[in-house]
Amino acid sequence: MSWGAESSDEELMLGYRDGDAGAFDSLYARHKGGLYRYLLRQCRDAAAAEELFQDVWMNLIRARAGYTVQAKFTTYLYRLAHNRLIDHYRKHARATAVAFDDEGGDALLELPDDRVRPADDILDAKRRAARLLELIATLPPAQREAFLLQQEGGMSVEAIAQATGVTRETAKSRLRYALAKLRQGLGE
């Protein structure tokens, strides 16, 4: 069976569950970039990101037989990624895992302020994008995760809350803080 753009993620995953490897190809093509960037920007280590990326997809492959549609596929996929990331944090840097629980409201004060930059340093779009990535890297992990899930996974606040295992209000708060810090960092 051929799977087109009109097929939903959930249909693709059900197709793969029922033995259609082509469905997995389509699913992988749709989400490999976003998931990889999510992991890369969360752990900021390409080698670790590749390992995590592989683990997440392998977990999904192994769990295919028991897959049922209980939420959006992206929520399911990024939930796997979130859990794997937490394991990674716990294994390699406990401090990061602890910081994950910290809302990091005060971290805003530590961000560099672009407004103090000289006028001739005004960035063009590409440089501003690179600057955004730098700012994202400085965000507290929980806020960064919320922002990346929104950008890479295209997820709503509710879906972010589901994927990260927090309440909707917590997810919303994290996202709001992240956006505020990024805007502040960009001098807006």
Binding site: G33, Y36, R37, A129, L132, Q150, Q151, R176, L179
Partner: peptide
């Protein structure tokens, strides 16, 4: 999705950033 907590300028800027794969 999540339009209540989105910033369109940040969305555009993020899409212009490096698209690693």
């Amino acid at each position: 999705p999540g339009a209540e907590e989105r910033d369109s300028r940040l969305d555009r800027l993020y899409r212009e950033a490096e698209r690693a794969g």
